[in-house]
């Protein structure tokens, strides 16, 4: 499913023109990107959470030349599925309850 297919399905559900819905879909995901870029995390109950993971500096090799290169430390966006989503993809759907807050470290 692509963004425009998602917008199409949502648009019929909420009775809003597709164009406008597409705009809202983009806005939702841009705001998640914005939050993580500011070092914030995003928690969407029932769906999951997005946070930043830090990757340390490491030594890599140029696969072509075999030369050693330093790979600088970086941050990567990380998604962790929530309990309900985990259950849904395993077809144990229907259980809407969330047993307390999920087990994030």
């Amino acid at each position: 499913m692509t963004k425009s297919e998602l917008a199409e399905q949502v648009s019929t559900k909420i009775n809003l023109p597709k164009k406008e819905t597409e705009h809202i879909v983009s806005m939702v995901f841009e705001s998640i990107i914005g939050a993580l870029s500011h070092g914030d995390k995003v928690e969407l109950r029932g769906f999951g959470s997005f946070r930043i993971r830090h990757r340390a500096l490491r030594e890599g090799r140029n696969p072509k030349t075999g030369e050693k290169v330093k790979v600088p430390p970086k941050k990567v966006p990380f998604f962790r599925a929530g309990k309900e989503l985990k259950e849904m993809v395993n077809n144990k759907a229907g259980s809407q309850k969330t047993a307390g807050s999920s087990q994030h470290p």
């Binding site: 499913m1 998602l6 949502v10 559900k13 909420i14 939702v28 769906f47 849904m88 993809v89």
Partner: peptide, 28 residues
């Protein structure tokens, strides 16, 4: 209405994934 929009975006993604289908959101 904004609430409904955000909820249904999330629900649609969940539904799609539970059917075993991927969701590809450009840029994101």
């Amino acid at each position: 209405q904004a609430e409904e929009a955000v909820e249904s975006i999330i629900e649609k993604i969940k539904e799609t994934l539970s059917k075993g289908e991927n969701v590809v959101l450009r840029r994101f």
